[in-house]
Simulated assay, not measured.
Amino acid sequence: MAHRILVVDDSTSVRLMVSNTLKAAGYQVDTAEDGQSALDASQRASFNAVITDQNMPRMDGISFCRAFRARPENRGVPVVFLSTESEAAVKEKARSAGAIGWIIKPFNQQQLLSVVGRIVGA
């Protein structure tokens, strides 16, 4: 059974690029356009990992990560940020919210697959 990954980004092109990369590697992928939509999706389905952007409308990545982690069933699910943000303070807030990693955009497909493989144990 394929690992199920939730990809969260307000950019349609980034969602497609990340989704296509992961699907080509055999992962099952769900997408959401912002943190609120991702939180809603996480209440309908279980995921093996989440890849989220930081700067999004309605709910940013850090707020999403906090809300996602607040649900007991999501506490062990790895969350990795994929963002143009690179400030140490923002990364620290993400870690405090429960994120385990950070990838800077633009991303390298092999790097993304390597990170996802490590976090889901593939």
Rank of each mutant, 00 (worst) to 15 (best):
S86D: 14
V8Q: 02
L22Q: 08
I119M: 14
V116P: 07
P72Y: 06
R4F: 00
C65I: 05
Q36E: 15
T31S: 13
S11F: 10
E87V: 05
E73P: 05
T31M: 13
V29L: 12
V80G: 02
D9F: 07
G76T: 10
W102E: 13
A45T: 10
Y27L: 06
D40N: 10
S13R: 13
R15F: 10
D30F: 11
V50K: 00
P72T: 03
F64L: 14
V80R: 00
S96W: 00
A38K: 00
S83V: 13
G76W: 00
G121T: 03
Q43G: 15
A45F: 12
K93G: 02
M56V: 08
S42E: 00
N108Y: 07
A89L: 05
N108Q: 14
A94H: 06
E92G: 10
G117I: 10
G117H: 04
D60M: 07
V116W: 03
P72H: 06
V120Q: 07
A38L: 05
I51R: 03
N20V: 09
P106G: 09
N48G: 05
D30A: 15
S83D: 11
V79Q: 06
L112V: 10
G61Y: 05
I62E: 01
F107I: 12
N74P: 06
F64R: 01
Q110A: 14
G76Y: 02
T21C: 13
G98E: 04
L82A: 12
K91S: 05
D9W: 10
F107W: 11
C65Y: 02
M1R: 10
R75Y: 02
S63R: 06
